[in-house]
Computed example of a mutant assay.
Amino acid sequence: MKSAPRAARLTARGAATRARILEAAANLMHIKGINATTLDDVRAASGTSKSQLYQHFADKDALVCAVAGLWAQRVLDREQQHLERLSSFSGLQRWRNVLVQLNGAQNGAHGCALGSMANEIADHDEEARAILAATFASWQKLIADGLRRMQDNGTLKPDADPDQIATGLMAALQGGYLLAQTTRDVKPMEVALDMALSNIKSQLVG
Rank of each mutant, 00 (worst) to 15 (best):
D159N: 12
A109K: 11
Q73S: 15
A105G: 04
T135M: 06
D61N: 13
R78N: 13
G69D: 01
A166R: 06
I131F: 07
W71M: 12
D152E: 13
F57H: 02
I165D: 00
T183C: 03
A58Y: 05
A58R: 01
Q164K: 15
N107A: 14
A66R: 03
A166Y: 11
L102P: 00
D145I: 00
D152Q: 14
Q73L: 09
A109S: 14
E126I: 10
G104N: 05
I121A: 05
A128N: 04
R85A: 15
L179M: 13
V75T: 07
D77C: 03
L179T: 08
L193W: 12
L92H: 01
D185C: 10
E190T: 14
L193D: 01
T135Q: 07
T183P: 04
D152S: 13
L86R: 00
Q55S: 14
A68K: 02
L92N: 03
L142Q: 07
L102E: 15
A192Q: 11
A134C: 08
L92R: 01
A192L: 12
S90P: 06
D185Q: 10
L92Q: 01
T182K: 07
G69T: 04
P162D: 02
D125N: 15
W95S: 04
G176N: 06
A137P: 08
P158M: 12
R78Q: 14
Q106Y: 13
D77N: 13
D152T: 11
L156Q: 01
A160T: 05
V67N: 03
L83W: 09
R78Y: 12
L147T: 01
T167V: 11
V100S: 04
Q140R: 15
A113S: 14
L76Q: 06
L76T: 06
G69E: 02
L114M: 13
Q181G: 07
R148D: 05
Q164G: 09
V67D: 04
A118N: 10
P188G: 05
S90Y: 00
Q106P: 00
A133F: 09
A128D: 02
L156I: 02
D123L: 09
G154F: 12
E120C: 06
M150Q: 01
L169E: 00
K60G: 10
M150H: 04
D61F: 11
L193M: 12
G91Q: 04
A58N: 03
H82I: 00
W95A: 02
A160S: 14
E84R: 14
V100T: 03
H56T: 02
S116H: 11
I131C: 03
R74I: 06
E84D: 14
L169T: 00
E79K: 11
R149C: 09
R96W: 08
V67H: 03
D145R: 10
D159I: 10
M195R: 08
L76Y: 04
Y54N: 08
F57G: 03
E120R: 08
G104S: 07
F57I: 01
A122H: 15
R129G: 00
G69V: 05
V100R: 05
Q81H: 12
K141G: 06
A172H: 13
D61W: 10
L86I: 05
L178R: 01
R94A: 12
T135A: 14
D152H: 13
E120A: 12
R85C: 10
D61H: 12
